[in-house]
Write a protein that binds this DNA or RNA. Structure first.
Length: 825
RNA sequence: GCGAGAGUGGCGGAAUGGGUAGACGCGUCAGAUUUAGAUUCUGACGGCUCUAAUAGGCCACUGUGGGUUCGACUCCCACCUCUCGCACCA
């Protein structure tokens, strides 16, 4: 790629003389205005400003070693356009940027090179900041935060302590993927389908290990209910609803034969199918498995349970595989009809949902049907769409209908039956209505180095206490080696002087510090609050400032965070609301997801495919303004779309045309009416399109205006002024430069947004089209609001219309004022 | 399997409280300018047809097949394809 200037011309097209510049030198213009904005603090948000606030937020990036890719500037440009527009409309805009700086890649790199993650992270942040500035993005850099900064994570730890104090953080033994070969715990994505580690190919086993958990389930109801009031894409809200997974049903107790007093409790959403139960299933981890199993079945059951334990989550949750299971030899008694049904153990039942045991109704559940068919278990039909039995079923009927084979309940509709039997079971003390959630508590610890340390101490007596608030932040110690300890603990466990927690006065040993660290999600759960008050050393955020800026008015980022980050952040926000730190129940009022930018070949950009476009190269060759405007012109923001180098050439060409329009003499004469109309339509369109975030059509309208302007001999000041104001949020460097050259005081991004004259936008003449039987047969240009009967007369007199209706009787004439006349024959 | 969304020229995409389909840009071709190339400017780019030419006319067309309507890219039904998310949650 060429290193400088003019991306179109090949050589010798030197710009000479300020009046005759045929092209603009983006490198010098960009540097000039980026320095200017920085020197003037243009994008600093004033907490005390009397103007109404507008808070625009980007999902902050993980500063990877690879630097920015072209996907980042897409969302950032969109928010930058909105920010500049809102400033121009008179808002005080908060538009900050920061770094999601803890995380695995830096630690992995440290493992390979021995360079401390802090050093590489700082280096990467500097590079990201440079790249973001080079795009002319207007951020308030005074509010920059990094989650790995002790002044920041002090408050992440503080929030954790509050969660801990209120019983929302607890320890539990969770089954995890443990890889002895690597000496570490692995995430599900790091384990292959064969049950080996992706790196190294070592065997991975399932092992229960102590983990810190956050009780997000305590907020399930509110997290679900409050989605309704959010201006978010419906698809994202649906994904969160599915993830939370509220499910209404009943828990029912079954007696176990031979174990008097013991009850097997199950959860079902279909208590109306109780008469169709033909077997029961326990999950392999269910505590009753051993006691229910008969001696002659013990060997089979034990080997099945052992095999299930060895499987990874990925293997066990593969719904397409055949359903396995073994009979325990034990029986349960159906409480509605006293029937004995066999109890099986099968790994298609999960210990982590409901009670870890189910009643199986093969006639009306696809999974039970599949299992029963495979193991020769009877199938009893108890629901029918029309109340008549249908004989042997080819597959499970999971719909609702009318009860059959259900004793005195026969003939009831599903919904009524559910209510009735739940009530009857409750009256007998063997059941109750129950709501279950798919959402699980959040595994909040990682056995890693590069994350926030837990501010907790395990005392000798087994209790766990938080360290005093004045000892925060609890900083990460420097380590020699980043290798995991090999015991499933983090590298921190290898540093005795850090782990041993002693009384500050007496030096007596009090206990041992927690050596796990927090997951990467922790820091991103509340960063949007810290921007509001980034240097506060007494609280995570000051209450007055919080009420000044929150909630976030517009949040833009990738859809890959649809569930995890956005759900975790909502959870923490609600908790902070409960303890009085924030004043709103939801953090993000409006959410927009930008679509992925694919490579020029139409597939996802990746190093291995060699289709990655580097923003540095694009900015150097075409300029930041071209890059920004092109990314917005590619198509709707939310849509996935391929990069096109030809496309950016076209946008650069447009900006050159704008540039040349400003060369030479500018007249103060009023523009011809047609051009003035075009200008006002453009102002209207661009204003609406920024509000709707449909930037592509706004840019198209500006292109149309420029094409119109070129048809005139003269350059009219009013047109140039309006154009540069509209264009400036998209191409801010060019905007500032042209604004200054028009003789205005910079910066253009604080000028007033132009308004349009409704009288000029309204047409005084319209083209009305004539149809015969819906087919276009002619048109006429008439003054607006020409009366219907006049239009009808014109249509019926039109030569071509007459030709098409001749000989046929006119049945009906439909007249739509200012639009069309349709003659039906 | 379940849930959500999308199918429009050679390409990216416009237009949906039903009313001129293809704005704007890319690309291709031709012409003007230029020593030449690049840049810039003008025009053409579904098929057929009329005319000396201009203007004009006819037909087809928004994934497929039906339906509603004077009129459907837009609404309804069925199907096909693609993308994304979840994936044994009882």
């Amino acid at each position: 790629m060429p290193e400088r200037g003019d991306p179109m011309a090949t050589d010798d097209q030197e710009a000479t003389g300020t009046e005759r510049e045929k092209t603009f030198d983006h490198l010098s213009i960009e540097k000039k205005w980026q320095d200017w904005w920085l020197a003037h603090g243009t994008f600093r948000a004033d907490d005390a400003s009397p103007k109404p606030k507008f808070y625009v937020l980007d999902m902050f990036p993980y500063p990877s070693g690879a630097g920015l890719h072209v996907g980042h500037p897409e969302g950032y440009t969109a928010t930058d356009i909105v920010s500049r527009y809102k400033w121009m409309c008179g808002f005080e805009v908060l538009h900050p940027m920061g770094w999601d700086a803890f995380g695995l890649p830096a630690e992995q790199y440290a493992l390979q090179t021995g360079i401390h993650p802090e050093i590489t992270t700082r280096r990467n942040i500097d590079n990201f900041r440079r790249q973001i500035r080079a795009l002319g993005l207007g951020y308030d850099w005074d509010r920059e935060v990094a989650t790995c900064d002790p002044d920041y994570y002090r408050w992440t730890q503080w929030i954790f302590v509050k969660l801990f104090e209120r019983g929302l953080a607890y320890q539990a033994d969770m089954t995890v993927n443990w890889c002895p070969g690597l000496g570490t715990v692995l995430a599900d994505e790091e384990v292959t389908a064969e049950g080996t580690s992706e790196r190294g190919g070592f065997p991975v086993e399932r092992r229960p290990m102590r983990q810190w958990m956050l009780r997000i389930t305590a907020y399930a109801e509110r997290l679900l209910a409050d989605l309704d009031g959010l201006d978010w894409p419906e698809s994202i809200k649906d994904m969160q609803r599915n993830w939370i997974g509220r499910s209404e049903g009943a828990e029912v107790d079954f007696e176990v034969e031979g174990l008097p007093g013991e009850r097997l409790r199950i959860f079902t959403t279909r208590p109306d199918t109780l008469f169709g139960v033909t077997y029961m299933v326990l999950s392999p981890e269910h505590p009753l498995v051993d006691r229910i199993t008969t001696p002659e079945r013990a060997a089979d059951v034990r080997s099945y349970v052992d095999a299930a334990r060895r499987k990874t989550d990925v293997e066990r949750s593969d719904a397409t595989k055949e359903k396995t299971g073994v009979a325990t030899g034990g029986f349960a008694v159906n409480p509605v009809n006293g029937q004995k049904v066999p109890i099986w153990v099968a790994d298609y039942v999960l210990i982590s949902y409901g009670t870890g045991a189910i009643m199986a109704v093969p006639a009306h559940d696809t999974r039970d049907f599949e299992f029963a068919t495979r193991h020769g278990i009877p199938i009893v039909e108890v629901v029918s769409p029309d109340g008549r039995p249908r004989g042997p079923l080819p597959e499970a009927w999971v719909g609702e209908g009318i009860a059959i084979n259900s004793g005195s309940y026969d003939g009831m509709r599903t919904a009524d039956f559910k209510a009735a039997i739940t009530r009857d079971l409750a009256a007998r003390g063997i059941g109750e209505a129950k709501v279950n959630w798919r959402l699980r508590d959040w595994v909040f610890s990682r056995q890693r180095y590069w994350g926030e340390p837990f501010p907790l101490v395990h005392k000798a007596d087994g209790t766990v206490v938080a360290i005093p608030e004045d000892e925060l932040p609890l900083t990460l110690p420097r380590v020699e080696s980043y290798k995991p300890a090999g015991t499933g603990e983090s590298p921190l466990a290898n540093i005795p002087e850090w782990v041993e927690y002693r009384d500050r006065a007496t030096n007596d040993m009090i206990g041992r510090r927690e050596t796990h660290t927090m997951p990467q999600w922790a820091g991103s759960c509340w960063y949007y609050l810290r921007y509001v008050d980034p240097r506060n050393d007494r609280a995570p955020v000051d209450g007055v400032k919080e009420r000044r800026w929150m909630p976030v008015d517009l949040y833009v980022g990738g859809a890959e965070h649809a569930v995890l980050h956005l759900l975790y952040a909502r959870f923490w926000h609600k908790f902070l609301y409960d303890i009085g730190v924030v004043s709103t129940t939801e953090p993000f009022r409006k959410l927009v997801n930008q679509g992925l930018i694919l490579g020029e070949d139409g597939v996802k950009m990746s190093k291995s495919r060699g289709n990655v476009v580097n923003p540095d190269d694009v900015v150097a060759r075409f300029g930041a303004d071209s890059m920004r405007t092109y990314e917005m012109f590619m198509g709707p923001l939310e849509v996935v779309k391929p990069w096109s180098t030809q496309g950016i050439v076209g946008v650069r060409r447009f900006l050159e045309r704008v540039w040349r329009l400003f060369q030479g003499e500018v007249t103060d004469e009023p523009a011809p009416i047609a051009l003035r109309r075009a200008l006002h339509k453009t102002i209207r369109k661009v204003t609406q399109d920024i509000e709707r975030m449909r930037f592509n059509t706004g840019i198209a309208q500006m292109m149309t205006l420029v094409n119109e302007a070129y048809k005139e001999e003269k350059r009219h000041r009013e047109v140039l002024t309006g154009l540069v104001l509209c264009l400036s949020p998209f191409a801010p460097h060019l905007g500032e430069e042209l604004w200054e050259r028009l003789g205005h005081e910079p910066p253009v991004c604080r000028a007033q947004w132009p308004s349009f004259d409704p009288a000029l936008v309204a047409e005084d003449e319209v083209k009305v089209v004539f149809q015969v039987n819906g087919k276009l047969r002619g048109d006429v240009t008439v003054p607006v609001d020409t009366p219907d009967d006049e239009l009808k007369a014109l249509a019926l007199a039109h030569e071509n219309v007459v030709r098409h209706i001749e000989g046929k009787p006119v049945r009906k004439v439909i007249v739509l004022r200012n639009r069309l006349v349709n003659v039906v024959v």
